[in-house]
């Protein structure tokens, strides 16, 4: 078996475009997932059931159904109720809403693992509630959220491949197109796997650095 380099060079422009889009969709979706997940995580901790229960329902739904099914519902089901979204929008929001459910749980757990004694100490000095959250809870919660958060970012990065099915022209979409046109499978998919691997290793590398730098006080 030979590995045909020329094929790759021939398709380099498409691959590059797909790669760019993968990174853009992943970054935008992750940003949405983190921000929305943070808000949802706070809401999960609310003692008011009118706030926490709907959010709990949201988290359960997005965790209990496959991302692919959620994308189908939004992309193909949307028009029947009058919502027509382009593939890119469905991709970013699909990834973001899906990831947010997991981030909500990560942040909720992070909040809950700051020892209550530290809050007692802050209260005993009369440090107001918002200052307690901002200066004592959130910094530690973020540090505790880094390891599971990085894992989730890696999962989301790989899940961008699923967006090819709803015609987002990202990397996997381009490579699939390439195989259909050339009937070559080994080269395109080997390169595809290598590119994902490379990207996730890079994310993991920065994740480990962040974990080390932010968590220095624990060592």
């Amino acid at each position: 078996m030979t590995f045909d380099h020329s094929l790759l060079w021939q398709y380099a422009p498409q691959l590059l475009k797909g790669f760019e889009l993968t990174v853009v969709v992943w970054l935008a979706g992750s940003l949405l997932a983190v921000v929305l997940g943070f808000a949802l995580g706070c809401a999960l901790l609310s003692k008011n059931g009118a706030v926490s229960l709907p959010v709990r329902g949201y988290v359960e739904f997005f965790r209990a159904t496959p991302l692919l099914v959620q994308l189908f519902v939004a992309y193909y089901g949307g028009p029947s109720i009058g919502i027509t979204l382009n593939a890119f929008t469905v991709g970013v929001f699909g990834l973001g809403f899906y990831g947010a459910a997991y981030f909500a749980e990560i942040f909720r757990a992070g909040f809950a693992s700051v020892p209550p004694g530290q809050i007692d100490a802050a209260r005993s000095f009369g440090i107001p509630r918002w200052a307690r959250i901002r200066h004592i809870i959130v910094p530690q919660m973020l540090v505790l959220s880094v390891p599971p958060g990085v894992t989730l970012l890696i999962i989301l990065l790989k899940d961008t491949a699923i967006l090819s099915i709803v015609t987002v022209p990202e990397l996997t979409f381009q490579v699939t197109g390439m195989t259909i046109e050339t009937f070559a499978f080994v080269e395109p998919f080997a390169v595809l796997a290598a590119l994902y691997w490379g990207m996730t290793e890079l994310v993991a590398f920065f994740g480990r650095r962040a974990e080390y730098r932010l968590g220095r006080y624990l060592q």
């Binding site: 020892p115 004694g117 530290q118 007692d120 100490a121 802050a122 004592i136 910094p139 530690q140 006080y217």
Partner: peptide, 8 residues
């Protein structure tokens, strides 16, 4: 338990 803030 001291209850210091470990991140500071």
């Amino acid at each position: 338990q001291f209850n210091l803030w470990p991140h500071m």
